[in-house]
Structure formats: structure tokens, C-alpha cells
Design a protein around this nucleic acid. Structure first.
Lengths: 131, 131
DNA sequence: GACGATATTGACGTTAACGTAAACGTAAAC
DNA sequence: GTTTACGTTTACGTTAACGTCAATATCGTC
């Protein structure tokens, strides 16, 4: 077994992130991951540092409820650092959109957290009233 | 037309929240909404203030990526204020769970926003380098 | 009371994100 | 060198959240 410091088998990475093999192959088919192939006939997947990072981003995106396709375009923003001015300006635009979306979501969350606190307060006072 | 201050037809509420009639009927079937029925044979839906409020909560939940079923149990927490101590304590527990979830999500969002800023900075410096 | 606008109830279709089973290859351990 | 564990492809199944007809009813208006 080579030191698994920078590479992972499918079982290792699936276990680390608690996802199924099927999900990993699905992400690969969607173009979100592209593990190397090893073995004489190239019959086994081998995930490297880049895949590892991308998978973490994929799962965070999923926790936030983003569709996989959108997640793909988002994490590609990080990976494909463009060298041309036009593309850079376009990327900056995309960043603004993403930021606006995330800020809206955070506002929704803060709203929800606020209402939860109200409800909690009501509960506590009701409990006191009952004792 | 009675003053639509506290009641809405399906067209009105659908229009206000930019959802389809179909979606409203779906939410109703999931038990998230329960509009009155009006007309002799009770053949038309009439949404009141409570439905209006619940719909707003439903859509916020949807924006945050929650499944409708979970949204249902969440907004029921607000509506069914229990009067018994055991139920109140149970509700307080639920509130903690929900809060933890929302805080995790906010942490994910803040992470993402932070990384976006890094990327933005890189873009800007790359643009300067090119000029 | 005819007619267009609005609403209702089925019922089947669709998309996303995998689950699951089958059938088979390969590597590891004994 | 054969079990045993791990991995692969193919392909059909599933769930959620509606979309999209089609057929029918009813309301408001002239």
C-alpha cells in the first residue's frame, strides 16, 4: 500500500467523506470529479489531492442545497483560473452573482434563527407559567 | 369582491408569491396549507392570513433547500403552540436541533463567501498584472 | 343565459440525485 | 491457485417536487 497521503482509493475517499461509491461515480459522470485510472487496463479509480478538494466543495454545495450542475460551474471557477482579461472580468461577474445568492441565503437563515429564538422564549415563559 | 386584505383567491396568492396553482395544491396535499373552501358546493379555495404566513415560510424553507416534509414539521412548530410541559420540552429540543442545523449552514455559507473573496482578490491582481 | 375567465380534479410525465441489483473482472490473502 | 474482498459497468428503480395536459365546473359580465 503506497502512503495514502496524496492519493485515495474509492473506498478510502468514500469512507472519509461518508458517501457511497455510486455517488462518487455519479459526480464523476457529471464531470465534477475526474480521478486517474490505474492498473494495467486502467480499471481502477485513483483520487488525488485535487479530487479530494473538489469533493469537499461538492459536499458543501450539496449541504447548501445547490444542484450538482451549479456546483460544477462553481468549483470550476476555482480550478480554471483564466489568464485572459475578458474571462477574468466575466469571472468577476460570476463571483458577484454567487455572492449575492449566498448573502440572500444567509439573510433567510438569520431570519429563521431569529424566529426560532422568539419561539424558544415563548416556550420558556410557558414552561415557567406551568410550574 | 370582498376586501382582499385578509383573504386571497388562488390566483391572487399564487401571483403574489410567484408560484403556480399546481404548487399550491401540492403544498396543500402535503398538509402544509389548508385553505378554506367557499361556494355552495365548497368548490373554491380561499386562503387566509394563516395560509399567507405559512406560504411565506414554505418558500423560505424551499430557498434554503429543505424538503417539503421537513418544512411541514418546522412550520407546525410555530403553529401548534403546545400547552403541556412535556410537549414544550420536546419542542425546545426540536428548536435546538433546528438551530444547530441552521448554524452549520451559515458556517458553510461564510466559508464559501470567504473563498469567493480570495478568488476575487486573485482576479483583481491578475487583471492588474495584465494591464 | 351565453360566454370568456377562473377554478377543480384526476392522471400521467419529468428531472435530479442517486439506490440497487446483476454480472463480471482483479487484486490480496491464505 | 482458489477463496475473498474490492472494484467496474450496465441498466433499471425510486423519491421529491412539481409540470402538463384533459375534461369539467362555476363565476362574473354583458
Amino acid at each position: 500500500m503506497p502512503p495514502s497521503s496524496t492519493t485515495w482509493t474509492i473506498a478510502e475517499i468514500a469512507n472519509e467523506f461518508s458517501v457511497t461509491h455510486r455517488a462518487l461515480r455519479h459526480y464523476e459522470q457529471m464531470g465534477l470529479l475526474s480521478p486517474e485510472r490505474v492498473g494495467p487496463n486502467g480499471s481502477r479509480r485513483l483520487y488525488d489531492k485535487r479530487d479530494h478538494i473538489r469533493l469537499a466543495l461538492i459536499l458543501r454545495g450539496r449541504r447548501l442545497g445547490f444542484p450538482l450542475e451549479e456546483i460544477g460551474t462553481i468549483i470550476d471557477m476555482y480550478d480554471d483560473q483564466p489568464g485572459e482579461a475578458g474571462q477574468l472580468r466575466y469571472l468577476l461577474d460570476q463571483i458577484q452573482d454567487r455572492r449575492a445568492d449566498l448573502q440572500r441565503r444567509r439573510a433567510d437563515i438569520d431570519q429563521s434563527l431569529g424566529e426560532l429564538e422568539e419561539l424558544e422564549a415563548r416556550c420558556h415563559s410557558d414552561l415557567k407559567r406551568l410550574s
